[in-house]
């Protein structure tokens, strides 16, 4: 597992630094234009999305075949991607909170309204999209994956809007979708571990 995560770290290393810089710049700008807490959503999603990029690189570089013959189980290969997604999304969320808090403090009137809602939105969007993009990354080709990536975020947003319309309390609605997202992610992980190894890799 450590070696697989290390390989993914090397893959995203160059992109990661640029992305962190971009997020910092956006965060500062956002804090003046709107609430700085929106950055939690952006950074959580953007960093999480990198996992799907690594799955695509694995396929195009031939690593996918190589990894299937390494002395690790196929379940471990799948686990490594779900874990990477959690690590990156978690880092994104934490970074968003830190940058949001920093930007909020810099403002003349500190803006901490709705911070919990934005955290819930971040978790919900990341979990719902991850639960679909990771297994699709393993099962579908690159073109279809791009389509899934395009569709999954509006889908997650639609679930969110539906929940807000259903529940009278906005906070409860956000928390419910975030909880449902986490549940969906766990379910996706369990199913992927069982189902993907039974499929042909090439």
């Amino acid at each position: 597992m450590k070696g697989l995560l290390r390989k993914d770290y090397y893959l995203i290393q160059s992109v990661l630094y640029i992305m962190l810089l971009v997020l910092a710049v956006i965060g500062i700008s956002m804090s003046y234009l709107t609430t700085p807490w929106v950055l939690t959503v952006i950074s959580t999603i953007v960093l999480g999305m990198i996992t799907t990029t690594t799955i695509n690189i694995d396929r195009s570089s031939g690593w996918r075949k190589v990894s299937a013959v390494l002395p690790v189980s196929k379940q471990t290969l799948i686990d490594s991607k779900y874990l990477l997604y959690l690590l990156l999304s978690g880092t994104g969320l934490l970074l968003g909170i830190l940058l949001g808090a920093g930007a909020s403090l810099l403002k003349t009137r500190p803006d901490d309204e709705g911070v919990l809602i934005y955290i819930c939105i971040s978790i919900a969007l990341a979990m719902i999209s991850g639960s679909l993009t990771i297994p699709c990354g393993f099962l579908l080709g690159e073109d279809k994956n791009t389509l899934v990536m395009i569709l999954v975020y509006p889908l997650a947003a639609a679930i969110f809007i539906a929940a807000v319309l259903l529940f009278p309390n906005k906070e409860i609605a956000c928390a419910a979708v975030a909880a449902a997202g986490i549940l969906l992610f766990i379910l996706s992980w369990i199913i992927a571990r069982r189902w993907i190894p039974s499929r042909d890799l090439v």
């Binding site: 450590k2 090397y10 570089s61 031939g62 075949k65």
Partner: peptide
């Protein structure tokens, strides 16, 4: 079992040195 496939086997972003660190953790 050592396996070598036709064409690419490793991602382009890696170097032989980095590959050593990856395989050191796997094998």
């Amino acid at each position: 079992i050592g396996v070598v496939f036709d064409g690419n086997n490793f991602p382009d972003m890696l170097s032989p040195g980095k590959l050593n660190r990856v395989f050191r953790d796997i094998y």
